[in-house]
Design a protein around this nucleic acid. Structure first.
Lengths: 233, 233
DNA sequence: CGCACCGTTGAGCAAGTTCAATCCAAGTGG
DNA sequence: CCACTTGGATTGAACTTGCTCAACGGTGCG
């Protein structure tokens, strides 16, 4: 559904169903913006590897992940890429400084999102201190994540980067220690500032050290105590 | 003044002068919070290398640089340090997620700041959408900076990092192309994720390439076109 | 089947680090 | 006032980490 149409046309089509979706219990009213009756998300879907928005495009919408996963990244002219974040279920993304997206967002896997128009949210923020505070709090949380990544990229070894990354992903999946990574080795490399070969070799090292076990490439089982020992702080 | 006393006692002492300072034209009412009559900053000073607040401390105040320069950083247990930002005149810093500072702030040189209590500002944000929007906008700007740094650290060479850094600092000093760096090589290294030796060598390379000239260590004159060519994007 | 993509592994290489020596400017104490 | 110390910066030489280039195996899909 929907991957051939645009967010704009989907929005128009969905307007008629707005009443139904805004009913309590329909699942679209939890979390940020929950108390904002005019801010109703429109469901939308993207296929694996599909671009959601590109750097430099006008930032008309913001997005909340319902199911699947999204990456945001920046690219240099020669193709070097830095992934700035992965967004799993419930994560909100697409808010930028100014009217233009300053990175690119793509779906890691087939992904369902809720789309919100940015303008009404910003207008709501200028009227409601509560909405504005929610936006502030969200931006601040993102800032903390970005600065943690800064420390990771600036001062940590490949082993530490991968270990920290796996612990982080595990946490976002509920902390069971066993999960399937939703992203490729290339995505991991471009997030951690490494090459795919180094990521692969580091996986092998960590497995030799008994810090994790791999199955079928993407599936991992973490030995969290040992991984935490690698990160050590 | 004031480097032996605490922000708390300075605040108390300054309360009596509040009326005077709040007069228009006294220079304390421009920029963010300008429209917020209760939010009056208290002048305060820090000596070179003095800590302003430490990671883990309760975040009671936020700060605006009046004169001088400040760095914020995180440290790993083994001493590796990542500077997350330099704050020059007019820059606001010290806002964190939650009630605790999650990095450390220190004065690069003798520095004068205005101190604001965080609580009243947060209370004002819950009442005034305008204040909350300013805070949001500030956080978003910081986020963009942090993500630019992420790209720098993850995917750029030493030459590109230093060139981008110098262009950035030049811009903050007015873009004349000639200025004295307010920070040491160690600070630059810890900001760019390099060692002091690499920073020094990279300075030498850039000078050989005619992209800048050095004088007395800290003083530099940039050949901005050539530096921009190094960064290339 | 054949191709494309993903992941792994090996060998050699290069960028940046580590260790060490030296220089210089600015204190500091006799 | 000068010897001595201290901290910042630069440079050289050896080393290490992670990168580049290359080959190969597995899996899914047209």
């Amino acid at each position: 559904m929907g991957t051939k149409s645009t967010p704009r046309s989907a929005l128009a089509a969905a307007r008629s169903r707005a009443l139904l979706r805004s009913l309590p219990g329909s699942g679209h009213r939890t979390g940020l913006f929950a108390n904002c009756p005019d801010l109703i998300g429109t469901p939308f879907s993207y296929a694996r590897e599909e671009e959601i928005y590109g750097e430099g495009e006008e930032a008309e919408f913001v997005y909340r992940v319902v199911e699947g996963a999204v990456r945001t990244h920046k690219v240099l002219s020669d193709g070097r890429r830095q992934i700035t974040g992965f967004h799993l279920a419930d994560s909100l993304f697409g808010f930028e400084q100014g009217d233009v997206h300053w990175h690119t967002a793509e779906a890691l896997s087939d992904t369902r999102v809720l789309i919100f128009q940015r303008r009404p949210i910003e207008r709501a923020a200028t009227r409601s201190a509560e909405v504005a505070c929610q936006l502030w709090s969200m931006a601040t949380a993102n800032l903390r994540d970005a600065q943690d990544l800064t420390l990771l990229l600036g001062r940590r070894s490949a082993q530490e980067r991968l270990a920290a990354f796996l612990i982080e992903v595990d946490g976002r999946f509920g902390g069971t220690g066993t999960f399937a990574l939703p992203m490729t080795r290339r995505d991991i490399a471009d997030y951690l500032g490494l090459t795919i070969e180094t990521v692969s070799r580091t996986f092998s090292q960590l497995e030799e050290d008994g810090a994790l076990r791999r199955a079928n490439g993407r599936q991992v089982t973490l030995h969290r105590a040992r991984l935490r020992h690698v990160v050590e702080d």
